[in-house]
């Protein structure tokens, strides 16, 4: 009986071992990309026992996963912040170091129980200043825009906030950041009111940078067509309404846009 028990233990060990060696970093990232954070975290624990990943790499992966391991606890979030800090401590100016700093900012901004928006913004600005071309810094730029526009916003400050983000435009280095920047501002101005000409320019800039989300793209075309029409910019309106008609043939607004174009005397309505 004792021998059988030992045999089973060995068998389980072998099975566990073969499972662990089949685990790769790719599997962990793949699970995490599919929102399977707990599974990815469990896999990381298994791999850790074997010491297959360098400590810094392990800390980085665990820190990122802990932001979403369920149940989400303040303890996990603080441990994540500590792990990111360690990653940054080893080397602050390589890819992992820059990303770790960015995520510390994110923890301060949205993950921890008591957000610290001032410190979060300071981190993002440092990243933007020290590594302006790094893609992570570009994400930091968008976070600054978000914080400037909406962070503890009060009614009297709406237009002042807009002026603050205008100056950040010069830091944009890639199309994806350009789309987000211009969409955020145009959406803000449409919600709170603002110069239509400026709104249209932001929408055009977002569209030209290449909007990937088809839902956002459809809405952007409609907004451009409508605002341009209101401004009396017939050609611009026809251009973007026509793009909408071509790309979104099964949208419920298709017929209405056709009718608007017909009213404007456009041949695109046919």
């Amino acid at each position: 009986m004792k021998n059988l028990f030992l045999f089973l233990l060995v068998l389980m060990g072998l099975f566990q071992g073969s499972y662990a060696t089949s685990l790769t970093e790719e599997k962990i990232w793949n699970d995490a990309s599919l929102f399977l954070f707990n599974e990815a975290h469990e896999d990381l624990k298994t791999v850790r026992q074997q010491g297959r990943f360098p400590e810094r790499e392990e800390n980085y992966i665990e820190a990122l996963l802990l932001l979403n391991v369920q149940p989400k606890t303040e303890e996990n979030i603080q441990r994540s912040a500590e792990l990111f800090r360690r990653v940054e401590e080893v080397k602050g100016d390589d890819e992992r170091g820059i990303a770790a700093k960015y995520y510390r900012g994110r923890i301060m901004q949205i993950h921890q129980e008591r957000p610290d928006l001032v410190r979060a913004e300071k981190i993002y600005k440092e990243l933007l200043h020290d590594f302006p071309l790094n893609p992570i810094s570009q994400r930091a730029l968008i976070q600054v825009v978000l914080l400037r526009l909406y962070g503890n916003l009060e009614k009297g400050e709406i237009f002042h906030r807009l002026e603050e983000v205008e100056e950040l435009k010069g830091f944009i280095r890639n199309p994806s950041t350009a789309v987000c920047y211009h969409e955020l501002i145009s959406d803000y101005m449409i919600r709170f009111g603002g110069n239509k000409e400026v709104i249209l320019n932001h929408l055009i800039a977002a569209e030209q940078a290449g909007i990937h989300s088809f839902m956002n793209r459809a809405d952007t075309y409609v907004r451009m067509g409508m605002i341009a029409r209101e401004l009396g910019k017939r050609d611009v309106s026809i251009l973007y309404f026509s793009k909408f008609l071509k790309e979104f043939q099964r949208d419920a607004r298709h017929y209405q846009v056709q009718m608007i174009l017909r009213e404007m005397g456009s041949v695109a309505s046919k």
């Binding site: 970093e25 790719e26 990232w29 793949n30 699970d31 995490a32 990309s33 599919l34 929102f35 954070f37 990815a40 990122l64 996963l65 932001l67 979403n68 989400k72 990303a99 995520y103 994110r106 949205i110 993950h111």
Partner: peptide, 13 residues
Amino acid sequence: FRMETAFGALLEL
């Protein structure tokens, strides 16, 4: 929250 980690994972992939 969820997209934060998933996005980081996609960049690694």
